[in-house]
Design a protein around this nucleic acid. Structure first.
Length: 433
RNA sequence: GUGGGAGUAGUUCAGUUGGUAGAGCCCUUGACUGUGGAUCAAGUGGUCGCCGGUUCGAGUCCGGUCUCCCACCCCA
């Protein structure tokens, strides 16, 4: 039985060329988070199933997660998302100075059929603010999101943040005659309004929520917070006032990508206030790049004092597809970063001298790749040229005997021979920025 | 879980009514025995996804199966 050369379906396996792109993206995202004062944390990949059962949504936990039983008979999940673990960390941390601004790059798992923008093992970016009930925290996490997109070079109009508010939506449904006990169902129906054809949705919605389908359809149609009918339906609503403040703060901060859409719901059950998502406005990537919202009851589940929270998850894969769609991954990222110098070794007789020479360069902070096979020099030069390295240092019998090294400029083609001691300083001086 | 498409060299692909498995790129070697990208020439490399059936003969036709891609569901 031969072993397969493929990993399990949808599992994360990145060759260096892919890893370089991911590192580039992750670096930009981390930098954006840091610019708002966020600190990085980490937590377990494997969690008890109960952690997610209470609030994440039963479909996500029971049907779309990797479930297993450990040797002690405990039901475990490879985490499908990070937020419940974060809530537990906060609840169990003892004294923390508020507000908490934390970010993470967790690997998460979902047992679904892979397709464009979706795999079974994926890395995302999580960014949360805890301990701030004020809408300012919701505003700030969206600012981080927008900053990420801007720092990666996304042009205005290529992406859009759409947002709504769960409490506003609830009040709206109530005003339109949908009783509170049907709201959870109404949200899922609302969520799909924009994702299905009119006929399909009509039939499906009638089946799910019967006579209230019309009200849900009407609710989903609001995309303007200044809509007079919306104002009439929600007279004196705190949720509406809060959402308007959210909108005004974002535009005051210079965010032009965000807009209200009552059809935004998001799938996670624990959201209690603002909810939002990030989309590609073009047709190439239909899948949400990011989803998030406010969860004011999650930390309290662990006993002790409750704490408000708001944050989002951003898929690095979906973000990457977006960037590739718009040509926003710089060419140099894909081709890789070459070393500063390649040390060519003529024969085994010079190898010890070459090792010592290369170590001296590395001690100065230079990046040095040394040939290990003593292939003929033509081969070594060819290998060096392929990496794009700017200099090749040749150590042959003549050089080794004289304590010198031949330095060839791979760009210009010229070559000089200098002492090994001077080479480090020379290479530092001629290092391309 | 449901539907559509695709599996042939490392890679991108071609392969005619069923008749000896091909090309470009890559790689290796040589022209150039201490110097790269260019050029020229040669070469390595394939259980044609897997199993079975039809046939004198299957990459090609039929059945099954696996995998990947895309879409639905849901979601990052």
């Amino acid at each position: 039985m031969e072993l397969s050369t493929k990993p399990l379906a949808g599992m994360r396996q990145l060759y260096p060329a892919d890893m370089r792109v991911e590192e580039y993206i992750e670096g930009k995202v981390r930098e954006a988070g840091r610019s708002y004062g966020f600190e990085e944390y980490d937590c377990p990949t494997l969690e008890p199933m109960e952690l997610f059962l209470a609030k994440s949504g039963s479909e996500l936990v029971l049907e779309q997660s990797y479930r297993l039983t450990d040797r002690g008979g405990r039901e475990l999940l490879l985490r499908p998302e990070l937020t419940p673990s974060l809530a537990r960390m906060i609840a169990g941390a003892g004294e923390l100075h508020l507000p908490i601004r934390w970010m993470a790059f967790p690997i998460c798992f979902r047992y679904e059929r892979p397709q464009r923008g979706r795999v079974r093992e994926f890395k995302q970016f999580n960014c949360d603010i805890l301990g701030v009930p004020d809408i300012a925290a919701d505003v700030e996490v969206v600012l981080v999101l927008d900053r990420i997109m801007k720092s990666l070079g996304a042009a205005p109009g290529t992406y859009a943040v759409r947002y709504s508010n769960r409490r506003l939506a609830s009040e709206l449904l109530l005003a339109l005659g949908v009783p509170a006990e049907l709201h959870q169902t109404a949200f899922t129906v609302l969520d799909r309004k924009s994702k299905m054809s009119q006929e399909d949705w009509d039939a499906w919605a009638a089946d799910r929520i019967g006579p209230h389908a019309g009200a849900v359809a009407e609710a989903s149609g609001f995309t303007d917070l200044d809509d007079l009918r919306l104002g009439n339906l929600l007279k004196g609503s705190g949720a509406l006032a809060e959402t308007v403040e959210f909108k005004d703060s974002l535009s005051a901060a210079g965010v032009t990508s965000a807009s209200f859409d009552a059809g935004v719901v998001r799938g996670l059950d624990y959201y209690t206030g603002m909810v939002f998502e990030l989309l590609d406005t073009g047709g190439e990537n239909r899948r949400a790049i990011c989803g998030g919202g406010r969860y004011d009851n999650l930390v309290g589940l662990f006993g002790g004092r409750p704490m408000t929270g708001v944050g989002f998850g951003l898929g690095l894969l979906t973000l990457r597809l977006f960037l590739e769609t718009y040509g926003l991954v710089p060419a140099g990222v894909a081709s890789g970063t070459p070393s500063d110098v390649f040390v060519a070794v003529f024969s085994k007789a010079e190898r010890e001298a070459a090792f010592a020479f290369a170590e001296g360069l590395r001690a100065r902070g230079l990046r040095v790749e040394m040939d290990l096979d003593c292939r003929n020099l033509g081969r070594q030069f060819k290998a060096a040229a392929r990496t794009g390295v700017p200099w090749v240092a040749v150590i042959g019998p003549e050089e080794a005997a004289a304590g010198r090294v031949a330095l060839k400029d791979m760009g210009a083609g010229g070559q000089t021979t200098i002492s090994m001691e001077e080479a480090g300083e020379f290479l530092e001086r001629h290092r391309p920025s």
